[in-house]
């Protein structure tokens, strides 16, 4: 153990890259499952999912592991890239690298940096809004026969509080919580309407098209990054057997094409169809 320095040695860095990378692949699957609610579920389903993701203690732990993984993956990647650049102080006048390696494999650092930029903007647009700003709460329109539609807040406790009640001052709204007016008596918790935010974001009349394009491009970058990264992680962890390499590579490509494609379909669906 002394000699191996599980943080410092070149091989240890590979292990960490691989482990964090594979974990992030798992995260992508989870994230995708939720996002697909935007297509296959209604607003409630999506907002329920969003609430679950922000409040469940197990998910919280996982999300911290995810943040750390992203940071570690990025920092380790940057350190590796700097070291690797130093290993060849004078470059070649002519380098025909395409003859022996794939575009993605040679550009993991660039692709990774783009993804990091994407992750930051993505978090500013959604995660930060969700956590740090006053979000609109989810409302539903209730139609009763003969009356004009009533708009109510949907709450976690499955109570429905008419918007009018808040407007009229019967119920007081602090953050996402409803209180009896002038008291500390909590009535219910509302759902942050991330669904609405998301739809409006991509349907923004002037910028929505750019957001959509940006998102799709980011997913293409992700696809490239994964097309090398997925199988590469197995190699780094020492899993290489000619009998199964084809399978690992195949799954890797499938993953690299399918997951980003499904992610990308969502904003396209919102922009063009919804």
């Amino acid at each position: 153990m002394a000699k191996s320095a599980l943080l410092k040695s070149s091989l240890a860095k590979k292990y960490w890259m691989a482990l964090t990378g594979l974990f992030l692949c798992l995260f992508l699957v989870g994230h995708l499952a939720g996002n697909l609610q935007l297509i296959f579920g209604d607003a409630s389903a999506f907002n329920e999912y969003a609430l679950f993701m922000t409040t469940n203690p197990a998910v919280k732990v996982l999300s911290y592991v995810t943040y750390i993984s992203i940071l570690f993956h990025a920092i380790d990647g940057i350190v590796l890239t700097i070291q690797n650049k130093k290993a060849r102080p004078i470059g070649y006048a002519k380098n025909n690298a395409a003859a022996n390696s794939s575009f993605s494999s040679r550009n993991m650092a660039v692709l990774g940096t783009l993804l990091l930029v994407f992750i930051v903007t993505h978090m500013v647009n959604f995660w930060a809004k969700m956590h740090f700003t006053q979000m609109p709460l989810q409302t539903i329109e209730v139609k009763m026969e003969g009356q004009k539609p009533l708009i109510v807040y949907k709450t976690v406790q499955e109570q429905y509080i008419p918007v009018e009640a808040v407007d009229r001052g019967q119920v007081e709204l602090k953050g996402t919580k409803f209180y009896q007016f002038g008291t500390d008596l909590k009535v219910a918790d509302g759902y942050k309407d991330l669904h609405k935010i998301t739809i409006e974001f991509f349907k923004d009349p002037s910028y929505g098209i750019f957001y959509t394009i940006g998102y799709v491009l980011a997913m293409i970058v992700l696809g490239f990054h994964l097309s090398h990264g997925f199988a590469s992680a197995f190699q780094s962890l020492g899993i290489n057997n000619p009998r199964y390499n084809g399978v690992v590579k195949g799954i890797g490509y499938l993953f690299a094409y399918l997951v980003p494609a499904l992610f990308a379909i969502i904003p396209l669906y919102i922009y063009f169809i919804k």
């Binding site: 590979k14 070291q83 690797n84 290993a87 390696s101």
Partner: peptide, 9 residues
């Protein structure tokens, strides 16, 4: 020497 990034070159 640099690190391996599995390019396979």
């Amino acid at each position: 020497f640099g690190n391996c990034t599995n390019t396979g070159a």
